[in-house]
Design a protein around this nucleic acid. Sequence first.
DNA 1: TAAAATGTATACCGTTCTGTATACTATATT
DNA 2: AATATAGTATACAGAACGGTATACATTTTA
Lengths: 189, 189
Amino acid sequence: MSDLKDKILLVATDLFHTRGINSTGVDTIVAVAGTTKMTLYKYFTSKEQLILEVLQKSQQDFQSWIDEKLNSGSKKPSDKIQKLFDYIEEWVNSPAFIGVGFIKASAEFPNEENPIHQLSSQQSREFRQFIGKLANQADIKDADGLALQLSLLFEGAVQAEQMKRGSGAIKYAKKAAKILIDGAAKASA
Amino acid sequence: MSDLKDKILLVATDLFHTRGINSTGVDTIVAVAGTTKMTLYKYFTSKEQLILEVLQKSQQDFQSWIDEKLNSGSKKPSDKIQKLFDYIEEWVNSPAFIGVGFIKASAEFPNEENPIHQLSSQQSREFRQFIGKLANQADIKDADGLALQLSLLFEGAVQAEQMKRGSGAIKYAKKAAKILIDGAAKASA
DNA sequence: TAAAATGTATACCGTTCTGTATACTATATT
DNA sequence: AATATAGTATACAGAACGGTATACATTTTA
């Protein structure tokens, strides 16, 4: 992949998060990236395509990071789901954290027929299913139900953290998650 | 208050939620409201002012609705906080539900110096404090902590419900809320 | 060395955006 | 009847938007 395409993706990701997607013009993106519109439109057929690729790359990066963390720790399923929010807290508190793409994108593009909304919705669903798989392997009875609850905490905490950095939202989300997981584990015994 | 100002506020509220704030032009608003830009700018000094008033009115309406519900039921504090998510579920499942303004607005205006972001942030904080007051009256020990957790569930569920209507998110949020409330109540005994 | 690919620079097109100026009409109020 | 008030209709200014056309420079490849 070209260096410039990467640079454009990186810059766009940052600008979309700090200024909003609709409020960020392609002129601004190329200016910050140090290139021109001609180059941008060589790699991306449209601004919409650029947005979609930014969303995809962001989610892939996050998912890879989480996967690696989970694989480097305990292999026991019940440990894994317990550790999940510890890793999320670590990720949210890292300086590189700028938010979750699909949460913002679905707010800026509420129309369900919009491709950007559809991708956002799909990413949210996939992350919930990922949690569900962890819950299932940990032999939790209503794994899908717990996964939905944990994803609500996750999305709520990220939202809160974006509204005000250092709000401590993620810390309390983690505590809540542990209570819900323990409750669900007990119910399955 | 003028009929037309009310109508503009109503139409703007609806359009902002269904199409997004930045994606809704004042031309569209006045066209749907059946009036002209001259009239809009007689009542609102700018689009930003209109957005701020829409946010304020939306939150006031919601808060009034919740207050009334809580006052018409049991006066016992521990009942009140237990009932809170029942009312929220009723509200989310009502046909009139279109979302929570401050959640979307803070996503579209991420800059913390922006007045719209500031109002959104304040409204989120006020709602959390409202839950905290209920928790306090119910003699829950870490009332603020529980309030934060419940607000995360609230915001997460509304977010999820907006991504896909009928997702059942609010139902599971309610279950999670009951678990967290019971846990917090026990800890204070 | 010739040609192909990659990127830059810049001007531009058509559209849409917020916001305003101007002139006109209908309705109350005094 | 005279006058203020509320609203309409419409045109337009000035800027920003997404996207394209053209011409040129640089590097890679064959």
